[in-house]
Nucleic acid binder design. Structure first.
Length: 266
DNA sequence: AGCGGAACCTGTCGGC
DNA sequence: TGCCGACAGGTTCCGC
């Protein structure tokens, strides 16, 4: 489920719900989703802020403990009072008195980490696309270090943190760049386009509450609304909205890529 | 060093 | 109707 806009939506929900409330209980129903640390150590403390780094959620507490979460393919957080019936696949929960935050994850690829001081669960995370450093000239330096196809480079979180598979296709379509173009062979005009479209598409998606591709729900159960804005992802065989050509699906690094062969010449 | 492929899981959908 | 394979929004590890 989570592309960056979904993670951002969840972050905002969490900041409205859990800040400053004493943590009274922690329940783990699938131990392996806790990748590091003992979450019970948070009992008695409280969260002071939830941040986002790439697709990670960062839960700051009033002590030196920090909880991290990555939702991977199917994780989500649900505020219990927002729903009528608790769904299956709840892997962990954190109680705040009568209120409760649920961590749900069908495929169990996601996880929770607890670290103290300034340790983090990621090895390396690249620049965030909303960072002021994310400019065409900076992007040019990054891209020209890699000869892989641009699609693979956009997806590499160690280079740019936050772009997922849906948006990689959408960004390259909007920029008119073929996904197989080698990153180090892109010219400045193409890089400027990629930079602008990355920011504008992700912003627009966040504003509309995230993508509903398969089964994404906002924490309160409403559908995200961005699905209707997708131009190529999941549309193989349909007509391009710009030129009417047939949208193609190709596979790169074992993942689907969608493109318009006319708008994105190789 | 950088790249492609396998692995980690469960659910859904389309074809026969 | 039912079974079976393909596919799914992500990341890490391993071998070349």
């Amino acid at each position: 489920m989570p592309e960056l806009p979904e993670v951002e939506s969840i972050k905002r929900m969490l900041n409205e719900r859990i800040i400053g409330k004493p943590i009274t209980e922690v329940e783990i129903s699938l131990p392996k989703i806790v990748r590091h640390g003992d979450l019970h150590r948070m009992i008695g403390g409280s969260f002071i802020q939830v941040e986002r780094r790439g697709k990670y959620l960062v839960f700051r507490t009033d002590s030196d403990l920090t909880m991290y979460s990555h939702l991977r393919m199917s994780g989500t957080f649900i505020w219990k009072d927002d729903i009528d019936e608790i769904p299956g696949h709840i892997r962990a929960s954190i109680s705040f008195g009568d209120e409760k935050l649920l961590y749900r994850d069908i495929r169990t690829f996601g996880g929770l980490w607890l670290y103290e001081n300034n340790q983090v669960p990621w090895k390396s995370l690249g620049v965030d696309q909303f960072d002021e450093k994310f400019t065409p000239s900076f992007l040019k330096k990054l891209l020209h270090k890699h000869k892989r196809p641009i699609k693979a480079v956009l997806l590499d979180q160690a280079i740019i943190a936050g772009i997922g598979n849906i948006y990689a296709s959408e960004i390259l379509f909007a920029a008119g760049v073929h996904p197989n173009c080698r990153a180090n062979e892109l010219n400045m005009k193409e890089i400027v386009k990629i930079c602008e479209k990355t920011i504008s598409i992700l912003k627009a998606s966040i504003d509309s509450g995230g993508t509903t591709f398969r089964d994404f729900k906002l924490s309160d159960g409403r559908d995200g609304e961005f699905k209707g804005f997708l131009k190529v992802y999941g549309k193989a065989g349909e007509s391009c909205s710009v030129c009417n050509s047939s949208i193609q699906r190709i596979v790169q690094s074992q993942r689907s890529t969608f493109l318009c062969p006319e708008c994105q010449p190789e």
